[in-house]
Write a protein that binds this DNA or RNA. Structure first.
Lengths: 100, 100
DNA sequence: ACCATATTTCTAGTTTTATCGAAATATATA
DNA sequence: TATATATTTCGATAAAACTAGAAATATGGT
């Protein structure tokens, strides 16, 4: 993963609401959760939430999938994995961090 | 690590210059690198660089240690580890991410 | 004391982000 | 087609972040 796109993803996770959104989605698992569920859980106004979700989608951390009236937000575990790898590989002196 | 402080750290890593700074420091190892070295390596104006470094210090990702006229920036591997753990523990559905 | 080096603080202009009510769009159902 | 539900887009404002030149501070050497 390149520095630019890693920075972009970190930036999106760098907002408490968006980090909470992403966390919620990850906990929900591979099927994700509807926007409405996020709204109830986090109590953020519709329009504000929508912008935050859009930002996460733009960064590649989330994708969306409509099922009828419900729009599911699906966390992208590959992208998350990419970030973890970035922190571990690109950002670590080899002897500084162990995995245990 | 709490969500608020994780978000704060992610936010700081969410800027290309700061992520590059942090990466440089990590590569330099536990002794870190002087501000001046960062300046030469990244070609960012003094004052701008200084603000970025301050932001990293404020987030806990970097500490500083003066040696004569030289101010060393020391990456905080504990904090980095905390972020990796946050992504792996708080943000992962147990069966989604493996360590290999 | 003076000068050079290293880095920060001041100041100010520009750009980006955050926020959210209200209106609009999309889909489903009666 | 009328109505309800789910979500986004519009529009406008406020707040925060980015940038960098110039001046200031800190330290060390002569």
């Amino acid at each position: 993963m390149e520095l630019e796109s890693a920075a972009k993803a970190f930036k999106e996770l760098g907002h408490p609401s968006r980090l909470a959104i992403f966390k919620h989605l990850v906990k929900a698992g591979h099927q994700g959760a509807p926007v409405g569920e996020l709204q109830q859980a986090l109590e953020i106004p519709n329009s504000t939430l929508s912008h935050h979700v859009s930002a996460l989608v733009a960064s590649g951390l989330v994708k969306q999938h409509r099922d009828g009236r419900t729009l599911y937000c699906i966390p992208q575990f590959e992208a998350l994995r990419g970030l973890i790898d970035f922190l571990m590989n690109e950002c670590c002196a080899s002897d500084q961090i162990s995995t245990n």
